[in-house]
Computed example of a mutant assay.
Amino acid sequence: MRSWGGQAAAERREQKILQDAMQAGTVRITGAGGDEIEAYLARPLGPAPHGGVVVIHHMPGYDEPTKEITRRLASYGYAAICPNLYSREAPGASPDDAAATARAAGGVPDDRLVGDVAGAADHLRGLPAANGRVGVIGYCSGGRQAFLAACRLPLDAAVDCYGAFVVGEPPEDFPLRVPPLLDEAGSLHCPLLGMFGAEDQYPSPAQVAELDRELTRLGKPHEFHSYDGAGHGFFAVNRPAYRPEAATEGWQRIREFLDRQLSA
């Protein structure tokens, strides 16, 4: 017969197991135009209500590093989903081939991106134990798209990790053909966290400062952090641009920001 103390210890162990447990895998969601697209979902299995995060992949595509980011957010206690934005261009193709096809087309159209993020957010809100609060995070081109989604959708938080061309247009020889988004800043629906490298060119420190000034002028809540010695892609553990100190501190700031904005 188990003693009360032994039973309590067992319950604590079980609670810890549930707290750390997650489920991850491929799902199908409804994106822009009613299209069914692929997405990668990772979610905690504990019973406590949790917020959700839509992860927008970078231009290299729906790849393993982005799925790892999705799982990391689930380990923080969020249901996280990454829609495959290239599902239509190259269904079934490798991430590299799909990204090449998307680059050749100038990137994902903005309106379609917003529709795909809206579908991903709806999927998160419909999950068991969801608390109804959803944020968005993106890297590189995905950082720009996170800002765009936060201007056009009723989201609760947005994280822009070195999003290029929120301010300024791509150079002529750049594979991404998108307009700047500064004129949409007045429609930002939620607090914004920006993570930038001081050595980056897209966005440059001057462009980050311009966005900061405009959001301040508009009275939009935002928090920007720039890291010395870091350039574009400093979160990417599989690339030479990785800067562990900046990335470690950046992840801590991201977690604290999401905890503030997405808690029930």
Rank of each mutant, 00 (worst) to 15 (best):
L41Q: 00
V27L: 02
Q23A: 05
A9Y: 04
R28Q: 05
A21R: 13
A9T: 08
Q23Y: 07
G25Q: 06
A10G: 13
A42K: 06
Q15A: 15
D20G: 13
E14L: 14
P47R: 07
E14W: 15
L41F: 00
V55Y: 02
I17G: 10
A39Y: 01
A42T: 00
P44G: 04
G52Y: 06
E14A: 15
L45T: 03
M22I: 13
L41W: 01
I56F: 05
I37D: 01
G52W: 07
G25W: 02
E14S: 08
V55I: 02
R12F: 11
V27G: 00
K16M: 15
A21L: 09
H57K: 09
I17Y: 07
G46C: 13
L18T: 10
A32I: 06
A9D: 14
E14V: 12
G51P: 01
R28F: 02
R28I: 10
T30N: 04
T26R: 15
R43S: 10
A8T: 14
I17N: 08
D35Q: 01
Q19L: 13
P44S: 03
G25E: 02
D35G: 10
Q23D: 09
I17V: 13
I17R: 04
G34D: 06
Q23N: 13
H50Y: 03
P49D: 05
L45W: 11
T26H: 12
D20T: 10
G25L: 07
R43W: 02
G25N: 07
G51S: 03
G25M: 12
G34P: 01
K16C: 02
A48C: 02
H50T: 08
A48Q: 09
P47H: 12
Q19C: 14
V27T: 09
I56Q: 00
V53R: 05
E36G: 05
Q23H: 13
A39C: 06
G51D: 01
R12P: 05
L18Y: 11
A48E: 13
V55C: 05
E36S: 14
R13M: 14
A8W: 08
L18H: 09
P47A: 14
H57Q: 07
A39V: 06
A9H: 09
I56C: 08
G31V: 00
E14Q: 15
G46F: 09
L45M: 09
V53H: 12
Q19H: 11
A21N: 05
Y40M: 09
L18V: 08
M22A: 10
A24K: 08
G33A: 02
P47E: 10
T26F: 13
A10Y: 12
G34M: 00
